[in-house]
Structure formats: C-alpha cells, structure tokens
Simulated scan of single mutants.
Amino acid sequence: MLHQVRSQGYKSIRIPITWSNHHGAAPDHTIDSAWLNRVRQVIDRSLAEGFYVPINLHHDSWQWINTYPADSTTVMNRYTGSTT
C-alpha cells in the first residue's frame, strides 16, 4: 500500500500513534516493546519508500495530556518517562 501511495506522487505520510494504552505505570511508563516494534516497522517501511514521516500523538491529547493545566508534573513525567 505504501508503494502505491508513493507512486501516486505523495511525499509524506502522517503516522498517528496512540501511546496511552501501550505504556506501563509510573515511575517508568515503559512502552510495550511489541507496540514500539510495530510503530518502528511502519515508520521504517514508510521511510524506505521515500516518505517524509511526521508522527503525532493521537488520542493521547484527550486521554491524559488534557490534564496538563491542572497536573503538569504528572503529565510531563508520563510523557518523558521520568520520576522527577
């Protein structure tokens, strides 16, 4: 499919990724390795076809990032995978 899209002249393909259901609990918030491998596979295939590949947080904005104004420390710790 990627080859077909690229052959039609498209130069970029946006990859929307929802992370919230694929990372563990605090303090590490470790991303599930199977999910991360699949994300890498899709991105690598897209790059191999010559696409520019912007990725974005998809759904995370309303699933947990939207609490940032009231709880910025927790959101940033989850986002960066840190405990500080």
Score class of each variant (00 low, 15 high):
residue 58 H to T: 00
residue 75 V to F: 04
residue 65 I to Q: 13
residue 65 I to C: 06
residue 62 W to I: 10
residue 73 T to W: 10
residue 58 H to V: 04
residue 52 Y to K: 13
residue 47 L to Q: 05
residue 50 G to T: 03
residue 72 S to Q: 15
residue 56 N to H: 07
residue 71 D to C: 05
residue 66 N to F: 15
residue 63 Q to M: 03
residue 71 D to P: 12
residue 53 V to D: 08
residue 60 D to C: 00
residue 44 D to V: 00
residue 61 S to F: 11
residue 75 V to Y: 09
residue 48 A to I: 05
residue 74 T to E: 11
residue 57 L to C: 09
residue 52 Y to M: 07
residue 58 H to C: 01
residue 54 P to F: 07
residue 46 S to Y: 06
residue 68 Y to T: 06
residue 59 H to S: 02
residue 55 I to Q: 09
residue 66 N to M: 13
residue 54 P to M: 03
residue 59 H to E: 06
residue 68 Y to N: 09
residue 70 A to L: 10
residue 43 I to F: 08
residue 55 I to F: 08
residue 50 G to I: 00
residue 49 E to K: 05
residue 52 Y to N: 14
residue 70 A to S: 15
residue 56 N to W: 10
residue 47 L to A: 06
residue 70 A to W: 12
residue 44 D to W: 08
residue 45 R to M: 12
residue 72 S to P: 08
residue 63 Q to L: 07
residue 49 E to I: 04
residue 54 P to H: 02
residue 50 G to N: 00
residue 66 N to H: 14
residue 62 W to V: 01
residue 44 D to A: 02
residue 57 L to Y: 15
residue 71 D to K: 14
residue 73 T to A: 13
residue 55 I to C: 13
residue 62 W to G: 02
residue 45 R to N: 13
residue 59 H to F: 13
residue 73 T to C: 05
residue 57 L to T: 05
residue 68 Y to P: 04
residue 61 S to D: 15
residue 58 H to N: 02
residue 59 H to I: 05
residue 61 S to G: 12
residue 48 A to Y: 11
residue 72 S to D: 14
residue 52 Y to S: 09
residue 75 V to G: 06
residue 47 L to S: 08
residue 75 V to C: 03
residue 44 D to Q: 08
residue 68 Y to W: 15
residue 74 T to V: 13
residue 73 T to E: 13
residue 44 D to S: 05
residue 47 L to C: 02
residue 66 N to K: 13
residue 44 D to L: 07
residue 59 H to L: 05
residue 74 T to L: 14
residue 71 D to H: 09
residue 61 S to T: 07
residue 52 Y to F: 13
residue 43 I to K: 10
residue 70 A to D: 12
residue 48 A to N: 12
residue 74 T to I: 02
residue 53 V to H: 02
residue 69 P to Q: 06
residue 53 V to R: 06
residue 67 T to W: 11
residue 67 T to E: 10
residue 72 S to E: 14
residue 56 N to P: 04
residue 55 I to P: 01
residue 51 F to Q: 04
residue 69 P to R: 10
residue 64 W to N: 00
residue 57 L to A: 06
residue 46 S to C: 07
residue 53 V to F: 07
residue 45 R to I: 11
residue 62 W to T: 01
residue 63 Q to Y: 02
residue 60 D to A: 00
residue 64 W to Q: 04
residue 57 L to W: 12
residue 74 T to K: 12
residue 49 E to L: 03
